[in-house]
Design a protein around this nucleic acid. Sequence first.
RNA 1: GUCCCCAUCGACUAGUGGCCCAGGUCAUCACCCUUUCACGGUGACGGCGGGGGUUCGAAUCCCCCUGGGGACGCCA
Length: 474
Amino acid sequence: MIRVRFAPAPTGYLHIGGARTALFNWLFAKQHQGKFILRVEDTDIKRSTQESVQAILDSLNWLGITWDEGPYFQSERIHIYKEYVEKLLQENKAYYCYCTPEELETQRKKALESPDMPAYDGRCKNLSLAQRQKYESADRKPVVRFHILPGITSVNDLIREELTFDNRLLGDFIILKSDGMPTYNFACIIDDALMEITHVIRGEDHISNTPRQILLYQALGFELPIFAHLPLILGMDKTPLSKRHGDVAIKHYIEEGYLPEALVNYLALLGWSTSDSQQIISGTELVTKFSLERVSKNSAIFDLEKLRWLDGEYIKGLEIDTLTGLCGRYLNKLEIGNWKLEIGNFKEIVRLFQERMRTLGDFVERARFFFVDTDSLKYEPEAMTLLTKNGVSEIMEEVKLRLSQLPSFTPEAIEICIRGLAEELRIKAADIIHPLRAILTGSKVSPGIFEVVSLLGQEIVEERISKILERVKG
RNA sequence: GUCCCCAUCGACUAGUGGCCCAGGUCAUCACCCUUUCACGGUGACGGCGGGGGUUCGAAUCCCCCUGGGGACGCCA
């Protein structure tokens, strides 16, 4: 039975990189009918927060990444880690170290100048009882360090083949902090072993931790999992995605009105591909097609434009009723406008924008003129210039009159009316359409004007023409 | 500085010695459709980082260089 886990530290929101890691683990588990376990690595008491835990859970849920076990909290498992620390201590595979952070800092600075990789020099390795007592009475709180034996450690990575490391470069690292909490490397392997994790799928930034962890597995007699290190996700400036790049939180994409299916699809494409470079792959298809062997070795740059394109594709593929529901809920959440529209019309409005929006946020932005009253409608300066031309006011007055007399306010009737008027006046239909669009929408850009006029309704159309013409004159 | 990883169009990638004078997708540009925008359609631009090998033959294998990234925490 395949068992994988996603193990975030609750020190912030779930971001793009973490979500991708979670997704790959989840896909792998689903594909093999295995278990996906969620484990919260909250051993950093100072930085872990309950809000972060909730935020991460919420984002995972939104993405549809569901867990079969957990969430487990490492902070609730301290006694387990201590047990294993004790075991290593007794077997002389670990030792107490009384160096203070300050002392270590000066050691590190010195080591940085030497041509070697900076590593703890092991000065507390063979402390005599007397020395230890001296430190204890000086009230120094010790940490526990893992004793690393010389040798070569190799990692068999599913994505990168074999990686080898010289143990000498690792240094006796800390496994138990002076506050009694385990460090990441220690808690992580204890849990992975005890939770019987078969495949450790995580970011490439963990490669250098892996030899340390393998040594720990071996020291404790645990069976090794299979490792797979995913490439990193970079920003457009080729540096790893971070807060500096702005919108890295999944929450941001929820708020901007992206579809979870689209984000999942995009995330899957970031570092993984099919042999035919298929772009649009639904969740269920991903489960069957995904494979770790096809994960790329090189880091990928997050491209918002492509995400937006994909989201648009998913929106186009939605049933109109589904999309209407999504738009309605999104609009309500933003509390925009006073609704003078029939609910039946709302669906027609959504239909007008289905092919024009890439996110729900786009819809709100572009369809706004439907939902706000004339007085609070923003008019773009470029649109206003269309109204100041000679004769436009008169033409618009005539349009208003004609439209108000229309017995049927369908797009077809409106089109006949407008085109007829243009013919009578011997002008191009466009010369009516463009100013009319500006008046009704405040913009030079909108869906087809006849549909817009129809859906806005006779009353609002007349009102807008009157008010705006008034405004142009004054 | 030391160790480790990586290297195909601007971006994501296909490619595992001949099918590749490199294919797909996003973006960009042009044209068509058209009341604007978008959609849709057609097409264009654009890439194997460099140098050595190996081979009849290299994007694919080996070495060096260069470039990018990661790690070197009582963070995870």
